[in-house]
Structures are given as C-alpha cells and as structure tokens.
Design a binder for these strands. Sequence first.
DNA 1: CGATTCTTTGAAAACAGTCAATCTGTGTGG
DNA 2: CCACACAGATTGACTGTTTTCAAAGAATCG
Lengths: 193, 193
Amino acid sequence: MFPEFETYLKEQESLSNDDIDMMRVKSIEKTLRRKEILVHQGEVCRYKIFVTKGLLRSYTTREDGSEHIMHFSPENTWFTDPESFANAAPSNYTIEALENSEVILWTKNDLRYLVNSIPGLKAYFDALIYKAGTTLRHRIHSAISSTTEEKYEEFIKKHADIYARVPLHMIASYLGVTRETLSRIRRAYTIGK
Amino acid sequence: MFPEFETYLKEQESLSNDDIDMMRVKSIEKTLRRKEILVHQGEVCRYKIFVTKGLLRSYTTREDGSEHIMHFSPENTWFTDPESFANAAPSNYTIEALENSEVILWTKNDLRYLVNSIPGLKAYFDALIYKAGTTLRHRIHSAISSTTEEKYEEFIKKHADIYARVPLHMIASYLGVTRETLSRIRRAYTIGK
DNA sequence: CGATTCTTTGAAAACAGTCAATCTGTGTGG
DNA sequence: CCACACAGATTGACTGTTTTCAAAGAATCG
C-alpha cells in the first residue's frame, strides 16, 4: 500500500528517503471493501486521503433520499472533504468506496507537521489545490453553459477511466440529471455516431 | 484608490507600513468606465486585480453570441483569470466593468516578488484560494442539486449586494438559465411570499 | 441460482427554451 | 422640457427537453 504511494509521490515531487519515511511514520493504511463507508455525512472528515487502489466517491443525501455525487477519486489521487477537514466541522458528504480499495490516511495535525518539516511538500499541495481550482471552474462553466449531451460527452472524454468503472446512474448524479435522461442521451449519442 | 486598498488590507492581514509601501510601488492604478473592458477574450490576463470601487464581471462568449457569466467581483475583492494569469495563456474570459470602477493591478512577476518579500502575504493569498475553493464547490453542488428557484433564492441571500446592482438577465446568465425563465421564477417567487 | 442492482422504455406532466411582441424606466440630444 | 432611443423586463404562445412514475429487461454478485 505505502510502496505504491511512495512510487507515485517520487514521480511527482523530488523527496529524500528521510522525507518519505516521515510520511510513512504518520500514515495510516486502510483497506476498504466495496460499499464500505469511510466518512458518514455528519461526521468530521478527519483525514486527508490518498487512494492507492480502487475508487472512492463523495456524495450528499437529501431529506427525500436523492443523492448527488460531488467527486470521484480513483487510484493515485488525493481526496478529502476540504471544509470538514480544515475546520473539523461535520461533513455534508458521505465518502464511500465504490470498489475494494486501499487508502492511506493522515490526520490534520500530522499533515501540518509533515508540511512544515518537508521542503517542497507545501508547494506540492499548493499545486494540487491550484489544479483542483481549475477543474472546479471548468465544471461550473460546463454546468451553466453546456447541454446535457455535451456534459455527457465531456465526461467520457475527460474521465474515460471512471466512466468504465461506474454505473451510469452515478454519472447522471455527478452531472446533475436523472438516470433516465442520461440513458436516453447515451442511446441517441451512441447511435448518432 | 490605493488608500482604500491599504485600509482594507490592514483589516485582513497585519502588515507593516514598509510592506504596504512595497505593494504600492509595484501597483498600477486604473480607472474603468462602465462597460469598459479590462481583458478581452483571447488576450492574456496579465494582472491580479483588486477592486477598490465598482463592480467587474468575467464572462465567456460562444460562437452563437451567447454569454455565460463566471464571476462578479465587487469592491474589496480580488479578481483575475487564474488560468490565464498563472500560465500567461490566452483567456477564455472577457473581464468588463459593470459600473464605473477603480482597480489596482499587479503583474505576475511583481506579485511573486511581493509574496516572497512580505511575510504573511503568501498565507493571506493561500487563505483566499481556500475560501474560493469552498465557494466553487458550493456553486457546483447547487448547480447539480438545486432547482432554478432554489438557485435564485440562494443568489439573493448570498449576493444581495450584487443582486441590487446587476440586471436580472446577468443573474440568469450566472445561474445558467435564460432571462425569460428567471423572470417567470422571480414573479412566482415574489408572489409566493 | 436467486437476489440485487442497474438500465431501459413508455407515457404523462412539469419545466425550460425560443421567438416575438410589448412594456418600463433611463438618459441623451434637440 | 420633450421626444426618442436604448437597455432591460415581462408576457404569451409554442416547442423542446427533462422529470416523474411505473414497469420490465439485463447484468452482476454472492
């Protein structure tokens, strides 16, 4: 579990073996079974998460039971509920494994310690936050300006990996339409080519 | 123009007079008339912008002429096109003054210099980026989970100041619906209370 | 295999977009 | 001061899209 993380991180940021060791000491390895929930809505998301294997999602549940998926996080991505994690506030989201997964967790305190101790780690996370911002802005622009078909097409192009691993109704939830609508759009789209 | 900025910034972050002076030296003051454009779509957005007075917006224009508003920036807010500014890439957005406005500009190089020279400034911008991320995530969640009426209601509550200063069709554009739809929703909403 | 889970389809209703016309308020030039 | 142009808002009729509800079919997991 940690070796995969180490391999990945060394590709991203040049870190010494001592740096990596510090991160290992503070890390918590966890195996999740499919459908297992890591954070329940209402709980505090106490961890910053790195996914080494599998796939997680975060979603909200409304009073009427409807779910809305905020994010998918496959292997080799970082994940958390930033608002809950940063402020130790109850999360609005449920974080769930969609496949049998392996994750590494760090608490806020430990992560702060690591960021202060390891040169370059702050800059690495800053760059991730910047990229996340770009993605968020893009998704907003798509939400206000694209047709459902365009959103569907874009999702396939940008997230081909996730598309292949996730039921269609979850993509519908992520895009903000019903499963029936997306099913019909996909049919038209598939025929239309 | 700069005095307003100085007043505001000192409320936000404790900075010495020397720090402020450094920022002043690098700053470019600019007055914008209503409808004046600061950055045209396709140009590089070379500046980080602080609005001391007035109101700016950023929007895209599609081939068919339709506009989609990404952001409103009233007085005492920071503004830029992050993608264009960071990468010196052509901007997808037009940045325009909606009122006669006063802005202060810094180039990327000067800003980098200032961030490296002034203790606390990096942390200040980091906090702004974090808050912006929260706002973006909230807007996405609203886009995929709320009805148009809920979005309208939320906009009024969160951006009462902007609501009062901007034509309805721009709010429609920001929310991702047509002006006619928003006009009808507003009528129903106003009567419904 | 049986039980879920997921996807598709149909029909009706709700919702949003389009097009065209009208109404309103504002401000400018004569 | 008035008339006019202009930007913005509203309304109606119509069209197109999406949701809702219900049911059935397909795929997958244990």
